[in-house]
């Protein structure tokens, strides 16, 4: 008989590996808007996919472990702290919006992108004790919407095509 927890562990491992690959790919793409911290957020495809097809708890675990591992592999301690601030807030926002069941994948993803940027900027403002850097908020919000939109479309297509097969 199929052991359920083994099955799930394997699946989470696959998702984590996929998220890490996305992190790596993203670290290779010079994606730059003139404002630091703007990224495509490819890994959010995995988080959104898991949020819809697996569950919030699993998506959360993969998201946090991914951030810590990617930080050690491709970044530094600072990038872990900032990614965590953005990642946690983004995850919270996406979960809440998903729970309302009123919106589709794209708005959830946009919310994730926007709140990721808000989280990072808020932490940056706290650390450097200069609240003028909220000056960059409009740019980061716009960037979050654009990247969230693109990621949302990609994640939506994944859910439509392979969502049913993920158990």
């Amino acid at each position: 008989m199929r052991n359920k927890s083994v099955y799930k562990t394997a699946y989470l491992g696959v998702f984590l590996a996929l998220a890490l690959v996305f992190s790596y790919v993203e670290s290779l793409i010079p994606f730059y808007f003139g404002v630091p911290g703007v990224k495509l957020g490819l890994t959010n495809i995995v988080v959104v996919l898991m949020l819809y097809c697996v569950g919030a708890k699993e998506a959360f675990v993969v998201s946090v472990v991914r951030i810590v591992l990617a930080g050690f592999l491709f970044g530094n301690l600072f990038s872990i702290i900032y990614s965590l601030a953005g990642g946690l807030l983004s995850f919270l926002a996406m979960t809440v919006l998903r729970r309302t069941e009123k919106f589709g994948v794209v708005p959830v993803s946009i919310c994730g992108g926007v709140f990721h940027n808000i989280g990072q900027l808020a932490l940056a403002a706290l650390i450097v004790e200069n609240y003028h850097i909220f000056y960059y908020m409009p740019v980061l919000l716009a960037a979050g919407i654009v990247t969230g939109f693109l990621i949302g479309i990609a994640a939506g297509e994944c859910i439509l095509r392979i969502g049913g097969r993920i158990k």
């Binding site: 069941e101 589709g104 708005p107 926007v114 939506g156």
Partner: peptide
Amino acid sequence: MRRSAEGPEVKKRFGRNDRIFIAVFA
């Protein structure tokens, strides 16, 4: 544990709410 991927909000790519949401945010 498993959530259905066939929920009504997933099937359609852009619902009415989605369009409003995106327009307001943009």
